[in-house]
Amino acid sequence: MNRNISCTVNSKSMTWQIDIRMSLADVLREHGYTSVKEGCGVGECGACAVLIDDVAVDSCLYLAVWADGCNIRTTEGESKEGKLSPVQQAYLETGSVQCGFCTPGLVMASTSFVEQHKGQKVSREQIRKGLAGNLCRCTGYDGVVRAVEQCIDAEE
């Protein structure tokens, strides 16, 4: 049941032999992208969220074969040359990180939301709706909302 897929991960081209029974989360973790966490394995928590062609997807509920030809982004690739991305930085400043297990998924969902709403005025309600696919048990989300707000305000 093996297949080859070619994709870009955090700007690097990859060709991987995969088993078609694997989820994208399985494949990414196997290749060392361990920021992709598994909290449920069935799309309920968002801990495994990555961006596929800039769209946030729960990689546990996504066949790896579907990533063939796609551009994948994980949290590892968001900080460049030792500099955190604006979303990562905002998470730290607003105290939105505790155990950190939900964080990579939330960072990616937030990144996609911020990129899609560049230059727009957004309400807290919209931010909440945009991050509703990610559970966090530690923070109560208060800082998370402020982190995203801060990033969008900075974009304006």
Binding site: S35, T75, Q88, L92, V97, P104
Partner: peptide
């Protein structure tokens, strides 16, 4: 800032799995 903050936002923090 949390001492483990950067490790966590960059996905570098390693958990048991």
């Amino acid at each position: 800032q949390r001492v483990d903050g950067v490790a966590k936002v960059t996905g570098k923090a390693r958990y048991a799995d």
